[in-house]
């Protein structure tokens, strides 16, 4: 049983979390998985605490996951969804956040299309902030649940070779997972057309491949990213059909993979684009495990952040 290593004020980036921090979070998560298995899935731990889910981008999955997590801890959970367009119509981020201060939230869960928004918010109000995705920067809670899912399945997070496939340039999930996997000594290779691999990615210490077929046989985990058409005003590849042909995962390509390879996807899945339907639903796909772990990880984070005072 590990004692608490540090105090974590906010969850903004995987870069802020040491291996010990992550292990401590997982240890706490295990306790909440036990709660999730009970007939009464609710504990009074955060009674009287206020958690605000402030979502400037639509994400039913992540928001619902945080909402369930907060409610199972008996927190008062308030959902505020703002379309970025209403913000650009005059109400600034600062105005929005200042208005929330009246509700005296203990934890603010923020999803925002701009990189760094969660960090900017920590300078604007007192609450603990959890970054639930900021632009193309990071999505640390997704990475934590991905790591946990891998650990559940492979019994380790060390010495693995993880391939992250797709739109690396615009993927916060990729950045957070790279940082997290490297903490445990796993190797990451990013895979995609060169136009989707950002300049400077080598600084993360990852391998880069433009040829999925050539590297798939060496991978223990294949993490497929969603192709985010909405983030491109000009597609960085000719069309989805061609993308799918070279970088989509189908049964035929999967023949070349290791027999114990597992498939992950942060969702929502574009079936038939980055991943063939029969692959998404196969037993070696951990996509549903990811969803389940999401609630427990988020319970752990809400609990740990609420558990201390500044």
């Amino acid at each position: 049983m590990k004692e608490t290593p540090v105090r974590i004020p906010h969850i903004l980036s995987m870069a802020d979390l040491s291996r010990e921090d992550i292990e401590f979070i997982f240890q706490t998560t295990d306790r909440f998985r036990e709660v999730g298995g009970r007939p009464i899935k609710k504990v009074p731990a955060l009674r009287g605490k206020t958690v605000i889910n402030l979502f400037f981008e639509n994400s039913t999955r992540t928001r619902t996951s945080f909402e369930i997590a907060g409610k199972r801890l008996s927190a008062d959970v308030i959902n505020i969804t703002k379309s970025s367009s209403s913000v650009s119509k005059g109400e600034s981020l600062l105005d929005t956040v200042k208005n929330l201060e009246a509700m005296a939230p203990d934890v603010l869960v923020v999803r925002h299309p701009a990189a760094g928004a969660a960090q900017t918010i920590t300078r604007m109000l007192k609450a603990r902030v959890i970054n639930a995705g900021d632009g193309a920067h990071e999505h640390p809670t997704q990475a934590l649940l991905d790591l946990l899912t891998i650990r559940d399945h492979k019994k380790t997070l060390s010495g693995l070779h993880v391939g992250i496939v797709g739109d690396i340039a615009h993927s916060r999930v990729a950045r957070s997972n790279i940082l997290g996997l490297q903490r445990f000594g796993s190797k990451v290779t990013v895979i995609g057309p060169k136009s989707l691999i950002p300049l400077g990615i080598e600084a993360f210490g990852v391998g880069v491949s433009y040829d999925f077929k050539a590297v798939i046989g060496d991978l223990d985990i294949i993490m497929m990213l969603r192709i985010q058409g909405e983030r491109h005003d000009r597609l960085p590849f000719p069309n989805l059909r061609e993308y799918s042909r070279f970088f989509g995962l189908n049964l035929q390509l999967l023949q070349k993979a290791k027999s114990d390879v597992v498939i992950m996807h942060p969702g929502p899945v574009n079936r038939g684009v980055e991943i063939a339907p029969e692959v998404a639903d196969a037993p070696y796909s951990l996509i549903l495990n990811q969803v389940k772990n999401g609630v427990a990880v988020r319970m752990a984070l809400l609990y740990l952040l609420s558990g201390t005072e500044e």
């Binding site: 990189a115 760094g116 193309a136 950002p198 300049l199 400077g200 080598e202």
Partner: peptide, 15 residues
């Protein structure tokens, strides 16, 4: 600037 720092910060760079 487009480079290692913009990549790490997830910001769109100007080459």
């Amino acid at each position: 600037n487009e480079g290692e720092v913009s990549c790490q910060m997830g910001l769109k760079g100007i080459p």
